Amino acid sequence: MASLDLFAGENNDVTRFSERAYLLHGYVERDANAILEQLREVIKQSPLRQFVTPGGGKMSVRTSSCGDFGWITDRKGYRYTDTDTITGEPWPAMPAELKELAETAAKECGFESFSPNACLINVYHPGAAMGLHQDKDESDFSQPIVSFSLGLPATFLWGGLKRGGSPHKITLQHGDVLVWGGPDRLRYHGVKKLADGQHPLTGNVRVNLTFRVR
């Protein structure tokens, strides 16, 4: 793949790093306090948990969801449900402010009709990682993925449409937003092991919100 610098756009606050993939630098930084406060309320209703994969391994990130649907994994496979399997209750409603921020970020990148109905919450502690994978449990691949990063910096891995090869490494800072869709929608992507550190708002963790259309 070409150097990321070749994809830089005219707006210094936005980097286009593939045909339809964008990094919005610091896009939600000023909203971080409000976002984290809303997440605390969501997690009170649907607590964070470490899922088990179909292969029996335990994921290193701690996860919850909000919206009409939540993403889960267990021995039966990866899927969305309309009910939290821990509480037996519907997933907490997606805060309107979060939904609006995700929709606005998508519009900034040319995805005008994005209206997410699921938000996956991943909390990374030092040493946690996410292996290269595709987001393919959704029913409509014409809709993009919008991802918020808060707290400790992380190294995002951007691969190809097939497994293998050497993925790009993109540093994500507090407040950054990724948006990808179109021909890039099914790119393999992941996150390297989180390094130890401290952030004024999140302590020694990274919080990631991924907005999707189920």
Rank of each mutant, 00 (worst) to 15 (best):
D5N: 14
C66W: 04
S149M: 07
F51H: 15
S65E: 01
A129L: 13
L4P: 07
C66S: 08
W91D: 04
R214C: 15
I170W: 02
S64W: 05
R206I: 06
P144E: 06
H189E: 02
E29Q: 14
G159P: 03
I86G: 15
I145L: 07
D137S: 08
A195C: 06
V52H: 11
G70Y: 03
A93S: 15
Y27G: 01
L6S: 12
L201S: 11
L194D: 00
D176S: 03
M1P: 11
L152Y: 03
A2N: 14
V61R: 03
I170E: 00
P144T: 03
S65I: 01
P54W: 01
R75V: 11
E19Y: 09
L157R: 15
Y22V: 06
D74P: 09
V191K: 07
G182E: 02
A129G: 10
S64T: 12
T63N: 12
G203R: 02
R16M: 11
G67W: 00
F211K: 04
T104L: 13
T202L: 07
V191D: 05
T104F: 08
L24I: 00
T83Y: 06
R16W: 07
F148I: 03
N204Q: 13
D137Q: 06
K192V: 03
W158Y: 10
S139P: 12
A34Q: 09
S139N: 15
G160M: 06
G70N: 00
Q134I: 01
R187M: 12
T171C: 12
A118V: 06
